[in-house]
């Protein structure tokens, strides 16, 4: 349904297409009808299996046919057979899926069936799955089915081999981010892995700080390269631990709970404020610079007693600049500005 160009074929071309399609429709309808007859009669035989292959090759989103195929396998080939035969049957299923996947890299049902095969197999090769999905992500680094599948495979492999894959998966996101700073999927994945990494490595305060500072370096490199890409800025905001969503997350326990003292917090905020200010000098119209400064300054204000009026005034100036720069989202900046002016009025 997505991204198919609208064409205006001539009446003749349309007639020709319909004629050609008529045969295909007839064949397809026959296949489906025969398959449903088998299904209704609960005939889980090889003919039925072949029918499902033929239908799914044309239409991998036909979920009922996948369900029927699994029933055929469960009540036929996979029943009362040796482990070896079982392995072989499901391995050929994986090959079939592989072929379908090439043509339909975004079908939920193909991934569902793949998971079922591996979970039903006596000896699933999780390592091979990881390699495979790595290749898929090379072709399309943002395919979220593929990222989901990767997150599904790694704990299985980790469990099977009794080794943690957190570091290697973390490194995988580094590779992806270095290939493209705009790979939001990789930044996201990193936000999931960093807290686990810290926990697993049992880092002391100093080591932890070093690791997190390295993250700040990476994210800085990213937004210096492309200040207009939201990905790095969101990661930066998360790293700072400003958003209220952070307050319940693991990250919070790991970073804040380990009692970064108020003075350290202020130091961190000021350091980052300076980093972003420098970039703003180079990119005076960068809306994400301005927004990040607003977030950082707002927190700095709650941490320091002096200069809050000055900070508020600066935030209001930034809001005004944003209203001019980012025409599509002026109301958001107006809301932000009203919040500040309202609190100023209340304090006086």
């Amino acid at each position: 349904m997505h991204a198919r160009k609208r064409a205006k074929p001539s009446a003749e071309a349309e007639k020709h297409r319909k004629e050609k399609e008529a045969t295909k429709i007839k064949e397809y309808k026959n296949l489906v009808e025969s398959c449903f007859q088998k299904k209704d009669k609960k005939e889980f035989d090889n003919d039925a299996f072949i029918l499902t292959t033929n239908i799914l090759s044309q239409n991998p989103d036909f979920y009922t046919i996948w369900n029927f195929r699994r029933l055929i396998l469960l009540s036929g080939t996979l029943k009362e057979c040796s482990e070896e035969e079982k392995q072989q049957t499901l391995s050929s299923e994986l090959i079939f899926l592989q072929e379908l996947f090439q043509l339909n890299p975004k079908s939920y049902w193909i991934f569902n069936h793949r998971r079922w095969c591996l979970e039903t197999m006596p000896n699933p090769d999780w390592n091979k799955e990881l390699q495979l999905i790595g290749k898929v992500l090379e072709l399309d680094a943002r395919n979220f089915h593929a990222w989901d599948y990767r997150r599904y495979v790694t704990p299985k492999l980790s469990y099977a081999t009794e080794t943690s894959l957190t570091q290697t998966e973390f490194d995988f996101t580094t590779t992806k981010i270095n290939q493209s700073f705009s790979n939001y999927s990789a930044w996201h994945q990193r936000s999931k892995l960093l807290p686990i990494l810290i926990k697993e490595k049992n880092l002391d305060e100093l080591e932890k700080k070093k690791l997190i500072d390295k993250e700040f370096e990476l994210v800085k490199a990213a937004f210096y390269t492309d200040p207009d890409d939201q990905s790095a800025w969101l990661y930066h905001r998360w790293l700072i631990g400003q958003g209220s969503n952070i307050s319940t997350s693991q990250m919070d326990e790991e970073i804040k709970d380990s009692s970064i003292k108020s003075s350290e917090r202020i130091e961190l905020l000021q350091r980052e404020i300076n980093v972003v200010r420098e970039l703003l000098e180079l990119e005076p119209d960068s809306k994400f610079c301005l927004q990040t400064l607003i977030t950082l300054l707002s927190e700095l204000k709650t941490n320091t007693k002096e200069g809050s009026k000055k900070i508020d005034d600066e935030i209001i100036t930034f809001c005004d600049r944003l209203i001019k720069i980012d025409k599509f989202r002026t109301k958001r900046y107006e809301d932000l500005r009203s919040k500040i002016t309202l609190s100023q009025q209340q304090n006086h």
């Binding site: 979220f144 990222w147 939001y184 996201h188 936000s191 999931k192 969101l234 998360w238 969503n245 997350s249």
Partner: peptide
């Protein structure tokens, strides 16, 4: 299923969409 960006994914760990 909530994420670092305030959004939600299809399952725990999945990217916001």
């Amino acid at each position: 299923c909530k994420n670092f960006d305030g959004g939600f994914g299809n399952s725990p760990g999945a990217e916001s969409h």
